[in-house]
Design a protein around this nucleic acid. Structure first.
Lengths: 209, 209
DNA sequence: CTTCGTCTCTTACGGCGTAAGAAAACGATA
DNA sequence: TATCGTTTTCTTACGCCGTAAGAGACGAAG
């Protein structure tokens, strides 16, 4: 029986809290151990290495995205996209991780399977349906990355700073767009909605509509 | 006059070669120095710190994407998307970097400006046009990341391995899709083309078509 | 020759992931 | 209670990393 009451789950939970609070760069085995009142090497009893911690983190987040594929397929695919985005924005520090690991992690497999099955019932082929799911997922990750996936050190795009340093004579259209709100949260939301609508509106099963 | 004939450009070029050859994780100041026949600290005469090297790398790649915005806007936007993808796939190790830094880097500003101006001439607003450019860019980055942006260590998705370890009883649709080519290069290409068509087809200026 | 600006090196510090194994705390048994 | 095997934790050490600080080597200019 563990003396400090540790477990893989508690290690991962502490890691997520640490990352959310101080960013991905602050996640070191030593700091994570300190967070749990334990030496760094102790963690290796619960986790094979640091990479497993990272994998565990993305799996935690991905597993939280659960959407029932019922009703019109465009609607629940949209809900799927929105759910991914919400979850990613809740843990922006994890974005670079989620983006650079294969989507075929255990946490997302069941969801992918259910969606693929539902789409096949709508006339899509198995490959075609999962391509669609994949396209939506990669779109959301890409968009959310651009929105919130800043490398620590380069903090957020800093629209105001860019605007000032931009020569209006050289970049008139950019200047005008920035003044009109390019890069603001509302802009991201609007762009996300519009592009998602376009994407979903343009995709359909090969055979019929 | 430099004794070793070094320069910021040569440092960056060597860094790009090193990254292309051994991956982003292999890029350390010491190795980069060795690559150039010089000690690590020597590099700091040409570059303020490692982060500046990374910034320089993405700027090199981004700057190479130059598309003339002439003709039907959907066509050159498509060419733009294809050009980004080509450039990113040529240096897949840089993908995680490109994805996590603001798109508003110097190298891409001029391109964005020209495209924004061209779109405004087509009836888009300044903000609206740049949103469109941004949407296309983030889509491409997201898609290409999923295609080739594997974290070193996790090498490429390894479709064969996933297929074998997948229980066909539990994941019938996934199994079928994998057998049909999900995750192959052709699959990526096809999905990219289809989603890009959908995206471009669904986007239009607010006022007219 | 001296001086100065340019370029490169040496040394050192604190941090990282983790391999190897000693050491401590525990429940069960005698 | 005393002992034992297992489970859990810690100590030490190695080779990496980015880079701060400053010494040294060099050609050109006076």
């Amino acid at each position: 029986m563990p003396r400090a009451g540790l477990s893989r789950e508690k290690v991962l939970a502490a890691a997520l809290a640490l990352v959310d609070r101080e960013g991905i760069a602050a996640l070191s085995m030593r700091k994570l151990g300190a967070e749990l009142g334990v030496e760094a090497m102790t963690l290796y009893y619960y986790v094979p290495n640091k990479d497993a911690v990272l994998d565990g983190l993305i799996d935690m987040v991905v597993s939280r995205v659960t959407v029932e594929p019922v009703g019109p397929w465009r609607e629940w695919l949209r809900a799927f996209a929105v759910a991914i985005r919400r979850e990613l924005l809740a843990h922006p520090a994890l974005l670079p991780l989620v983006a650079t690991r294969p989507v075929l992690a255990p946490g997302g497999l069941a969801t992918a399977e259910r969606m693929g099955a539902a789409l096949r019932a709508e006339g899509f082929g198995a490959l075609e349906g999962l391509q669609l799911v994949n396209a939506v997922a990669t779109f959301v990750v890409g968009h959310t990355l651009a929105e919130a996936g800043h490398t620590p050190g380069h903090d957020e795009p800093d629209v105001a700073g860019v605007m000032e340093s931009l020569d209006p004579g050289e970049y008139p259209v950019l200047t005008e767009a920035l003044r009109a709100g390019l890069g603001t949260p509302e802009d991201h939301q609007e762009r996300f909605d519009r592009a998602l609508d376009a994407l979903l509106g343009g995709l359909a099963p090969r055979a019929s509509v």
